[in-house]
């Protein structure tokens, strides 16, 4: 079987070049001092300190997390019933529904966001916050529905029948059987929604009418306008760390849910 392992060498080389090396670059910039384009090896933590000690930056971070969190919550609230109801359809209809949900995912996100911009212009009274949420929930909802649906569809129908036989009503069956067993679906849905939502900055920019500075915008500003790659790298790294940490926690949650 050793010969099979050798097959992964090209890929290991690839990730060393295109995933590990670039991340090392970011790390290097983040812990060094100025010098645009050339790295001067003077180690410093001041880039991190500068971010973490400034209330304005922390507010940006907080806004990004809050928007991502609320987007995720709305996606679950709207998506869960949808996934559940789809799972209750005859099999052919289920496939059709999933196909219908997948189709718009193929249309360019920027184009759909521009369309929302046009639609929402008809409703002048909506606050920019609501506009942003509509755009964000719209973009991520299909992912959430599909993840939860996959989890529910995998459930053994006998479990439900057994619950009915034991005298549980449909509501109780849902609470005690379907819901707990669909938690892994919700969790993988969260992964697909929360993570990209934290760093998303194009939707808030196009729909929020410029009322939001999110962490993605900050990174863009420091790299593209200020030319301060060291600080930009530090912010990128902080954001990546937060996301990987929350990912780790979700995974932890997932395994405990499974053990129960």
């Amino acid at each position: 079987m050793k010969s099979f392992f050798r097959m992964s060498y090209p890929y290991i080389l690839w990730i060393a070049l295109f995933i590990v090396a670039p991340m090392v670059m970011i790390l290097l910039y983040a812990v060094t001092r100025s010098g645009n384009g050339t790295i001067t090896f003077s180690f410093t933590m001041e880039n991190f300190a500068r971010f973490l000690s400034d209330p304005t930056f922390l507010k940006v971070l907080w806004t990004s997390l809050r928007i991502a969190f609320l987007t995720t919550v709305f996606c679950i609230l709207i998506g869960y019933p949808a996934a559940l109801f789809i799972a209750g359809l005859p099999e052919k209809r289920q496939t059709l529904m999933i196909l219908l949900l997948t189709l718009p995912m193929w249309i360019n996100m920027l184009l759909k966001t521009y369309a929302w911009r046009g639609i929402l212009m008809n409703f002048e009274d909506l606050s920019s916050e609501i506009r942003v949420f509509i755009g964000m929930v719209y973009d991520f909802l299909p992912y959430m529905i599909i993840q939860i649906h996959t989890a529910i569809a995998k459930l053994d129908p006998n479990l439900k029948t057994a619950a009915y036989d034991l005298g549980a009503n449909p509501w109780k069956t849902f609470l005690k059987v379907t819901l707990p067993l669909s938690v892994p679906g919700i969790i993988s849905g969260i992964t697909l929604v929360f993570l990209p939502a934290v760093s998303s900055f194009v939707i808030p920019k196009l729909l929020g009418g410029g009322n939001y500075v999110l962490i993605g915008n900050l990174i863009e500003t420091y790299f593209l306008v200020a030319g301060d790659w060291n600080f930009g790298s530090a912010i990128s790294l902080i954001m990546a760390l937060i996301i990987i940490l929350s990912m780790y926690l979700t995974k932890k949650l997932d395994t405990t849910a499974k053990e129960e």
């Binding site: 990730i15 295109f18 995933i19 590990v20 090396a21 670039p22 991340m23 670059m25 970011i26 910039y29 384009g37 993570l195 990209p196 934290v198 760093s199 900055f201 993605g216 990174i219 863009e220 790299f223 790659w229 930009g232 790298s233 990128s236 790294l237 954001m239 990546a240 996301i243 990987i244 990912m247």
Partner: peptide, 22 residues
Amino acid sequence: INNLPVLNPDIVTAISLMLLFL
């Protein structure tokens, strides 16, 4: 490591690759 580009915000992946090429 394979999961990094999936988890990492797009903009971090983007910038890390740009830094590499530059």
